[in-house]
Design a protein around this nucleic acid. Structure first.
Lengths: 226, 226
DNA sequence: ATAATAGTGTCTCTCAGACATTATTTA
DNA sequence: TAAATAATGTCTGAGAGACACTATTAT
């Protein structure tokens, strides 16, 4: 035991990763022996920046870099033993939907190493400690962010159709949107642009769009108050 | 030295307190011997919730409870020595403007105990380490929050005139607002209500308003994207 | 009476929201 | 040719933003 222990609670970094799989929003959760399902955690190395710890944890989990990652909140979790403290800096991440081909491939291999897996947000199992509340807060923030920023694209592969994009918005917001209004507004915003490609399938082929890398991600929200 | 030290950076809680003094926005800063001016910090007690540590720090600094307090961000600060880490959970607080009578009274007594004092945001002295950036971020968040929530009232005493309220908005947003539009919108929002009182002075006396305690603090922002 | 501050109404233009039909493909 | 999905335009109502004068008090 160390004298300073009184004031040095344990510290880790956790990542809530959202992704679309099979038309539903999923989260990445880790099965921790003896504790149940948790938001996956990682220790922070000496003189390792917090965000980098989160980012390399996300790489370990998904095999992806350069995904959207943002600090969410810092929780002082109460563990079972009295006096024991765990401070978790929680990040949330948006992981692009996999192309159909690699869906059960490279990424799941990475996950197995940490016993992490994707769970659909509808019909979620019981989580450890306060993790259900933390996750609920992350989802609220995601919904809220979707309303004033362009963050939705981070959940899609590089090229996507407007119908796919609309379905994402509907899925996260939990309501249906008018097709014409949706297209008008999303195109006016000037953050996506058409490509020369079409995607075939059942019905008329759809034009593929892509996110404009030069576009400002955050749109200035109209001030309303006052 | 303890074996776990590698993974247990030092942890504290800091509070950025904004307040209006003499027609300018001020911040509370502490002079730390050997380190210069800092955002005031407090240790977190064993099994003390983070927010409570911040809230009692704010009480120590200002003598006030029940002020607006919100978690801002968690920084891993780099100290001088290599390998040394300090993780700070930073909160920001809005402290009501003092009534003219008690301006240099009870509250400054409390501050002296911790060598903390109010500094105007215009013409700010040099701060320790990364604290200037952290403060700039807090100010951005305050501006942003002002645009979609009712948080501005937290900087005023219980009763205030519409002109005073408008000056707060102008001061924080750094732009002038139209008087008639301001009044129309703030009254339509239904979060303040007139009292029976007037405040005299030079010129026509102004009606006093107060924040409606039953009002929803956060107004739903019109979705814009898309 | 003059200086200082409080208080009040209208018009225009933009944009969100509601709404139905045609176009192109595969089976 | 039927079924499936993509693509497109207009009208209306609400509200943001621009704008100038009258009212009430102290000096």
């Amino acid at each position: 035991m160390c004298a300073a222990d009184d004031y040095l609670p344990d510290l880790d970094v956790r990542v809530i990763a959202f992704s679309l799989r099979k038309e539903h929003l999923h989260v990445l959760l880790a099965a921790v022996p003896g504790a149940g399902l948790e938001i996956p955690a990682a220790r922070v190395g000496v003189s390792q920046p917090l965000e980098e710890a989160a980012s390399s944890q996300l790489y370990r989990l998904t095999g992806l870099r350069e995904t959207y990652l943002e600090q969410l909140y810092t929780y002082g979790e109460t563990l079972g033993r009295p006096g024991a403290r765990l401070v978790s800096v929680v990040y949330f991440a948006l992981v692009p939907a996999p192309l159909a081909a690699r869906e059960n491939h490279a990424s799941s291999m990475q996950q197995d190493a940490l016993q992490a897996d994707w769970f659909p947000l509808v019909s979620l199992p019981t989580l450890a400690r306060e993790h259900a509340e933390i996750l609920a807060y992350a989802l609220r923030r995601l919904r809220y962010k979707l309303e004033y920023s362009a963050v939705g694209f981070q959940l899609l592969p590089e090229a996507f159709t407007l119908s796919e994009l609309q379905r994402i918005y509907e899925m996260i917001l939990g309501e249906t949107l008018d097709k014409r209004n949706f297209r008008r507004r999303i195109l006016q915003a000037g953050i996506i642009e058409p490509t020369a490609l079409l995607r075939g399938g059942e019905g008329r082929p759809a034009r593929l769009y892509r996110y404009r890398p030069d576009a400002v991600a955050e749109v200035k929200t109209r001030r309303l108050f006052p």
